[in-house]
Amino acid sequence: KPRVVLAPEEKEALKRAYQQKPYPSPKTIEDLATQLNLKTSTVINWFHNYRSRIRR
């Protein structure tokens, strides 16, 4: 699969959402995906990867 490249404003929106709730509910994930015009799997993976990046 080709890698999804996020626009800077999409990254900022995801980071703001992460600061509010690092483990978002499925509803929140769905809303974010719709709002940013991304797949839910992309949003889920971003949160998973961002949490692991923060832990390093």
Rank of each mutant, 00 (worst) to 15 (best):
Lys1Gln: 07
Pro2Ala: 10
Arg3Glu: 15
Arg3Asn: 06
Arg3Lys: 13
Arg3Met: 07
Val4Leu: 07
Val4Glu: 05
Val4Thr: 05
Val4His: 07
Val4Cys: 13
Val5Met: 15
Val5Glu: 11
Val5Phe: 13
Val5Pro: 03
Leu6Lys: 08
Leu6Trp: 02
Leu6Ala: 06
Leu6Asn: 06
Ala7Met: 14
Ala7Lys: 15
Ala7Phe: 05
Pro8Ala: 10
Pro8Tyr: 02
Pro8Gln: 09
Pro8Gly: 09
Glu9Asn: 09
Glu10Asp: 08
Lys11Trp: 06
Lys11Ser: 12
Lys11Phe: 07
Lys11Ala: 12
Lys11His: 09
Glu12Phe: 02
Glu12Ile: 00
Glu12Cys: 08
Ala13Lys: 12
Ala13Pro: 02
Ala13Asn: 02
Ala13Gln: 10
Leu14Glu: 06
Leu14Ser: 04
Leu14Ala: 05
Leu14Asn: 09
Lys15Ser: 03
Lys15Thr: 09
Lys15Ile: 15
Arg16Gly: 07
Arg16Tyr: 05
Ala17Lys: 04
Ala17Phe: 05
Ala17His: 06
Ala17Leu: 09
Tyr18Leu: 04
Tyr18Thr: 01
Tyr18Lys: 10
Gln19Ile: 04
Gln20Trp: 11
Gln20Gly: 07
Gln20Val: 11
Lys21Thr: 14
Lys21Cys: 14
Lys21Tyr: 13
Lys21Gln: 15
Lys21Ala: 12
Lys21Asn: 13
Pro22Tyr: 03
Tyr23Asn: 08
Tyr23Gly: 04
Tyr23Leu: 14
Tyr23Cys: 13
Tyr23Ala: 07
Pro24Ala: 03
Ser25Tyr: 05
Ser25Glu: 11
Ser25Ile: 01
Ser25His: 03
Ser25Gly: 11
Ser25Pro: 05
Pro26Phe: 10
Pro26Asp: 07
Pro26Gln: 14
Pro26Trp: 06
Pro26Cys: 15
Lys27Gly: 06
Lys27His: 02
Lys27Val: 03
Lys27Trp: 05
Thr28Arg: 13
Thr28Gln: 09
Ile29Ser: 02
Ile29Thr: 08
Asp31Leu: 12
Asp31Trp: 08
Asp31Val: 02
Asp31Arg: 12
Leu32Tyr: 00
Leu32Trp: 08
Leu32Ser: 02
Leu32Gly: 03
Leu32Lys: 04
Leu32Asp: 02
Ala33His: 08
Ala33Lys: 15
Thr34Asp: 06
Thr34Arg: 11
Thr34His: 15
Gln35His: 04
Gln35Val: 06
Gln35Met: 15
Gln35Ser: 10
Gln35Asn: 07
Leu36Gln: 08
Asn37Val: 02
Asn37Lys: 15
Leu38Ser: 08
Leu38Ile: 06
Leu38Lys: 11
Leu38Arg: 14
Lys39Glu: 13
Lys39Cys: 07
Lys39Met: 14
Thr40Ala: 13
Thr40Leu: 12
Ser41Met: 14
Ser41Trp: 04
Ser41Cys: 06
Thr42Leu: 09
Thr42Asn: 10
Thr42Met: 14
Val43Leu: 04
Val43Pro: 00
Val43Tyr: 13
Ile44Asp: 14
Ile44Cys: 14
Ile44Arg: 04
Ile44Gly: 02
Ile44Lys: 14
Asn45Phe: 00
Asn45Met: 07
Trp46Cys: 00
Trp46Gln: 00
Trp46Phe: 07
Trp46Pro: 00
Trp46Met: 02
Trp46Asp: 00
Phe47Lys: 01
Phe47Gln: 00
Phe47Leu: 03
Phe47Met: 14
His48Gly: 08
His48Tyr: 14
His48Ile: 10
Asn49Ala: 06
Asn49Ser: 06
Asn49Glu: 12
Asn49Met: 07
Tyr50Val: 13
Tyr50Asp: 00
Arg51Trp: 15
Arg51Ile: 11
Arg51Met: 14
Arg51Val: 11
Arg51Tyr: 10
Ser52Thr: 12
Ser52Gln: 08
Arg53Ile: 06
Arg53Tyr: 09
Arg53Gly: 06
Ile54Phe: 15
Ile54Trp: 03
Arg55Cys: 12
Arg56Ile: 06
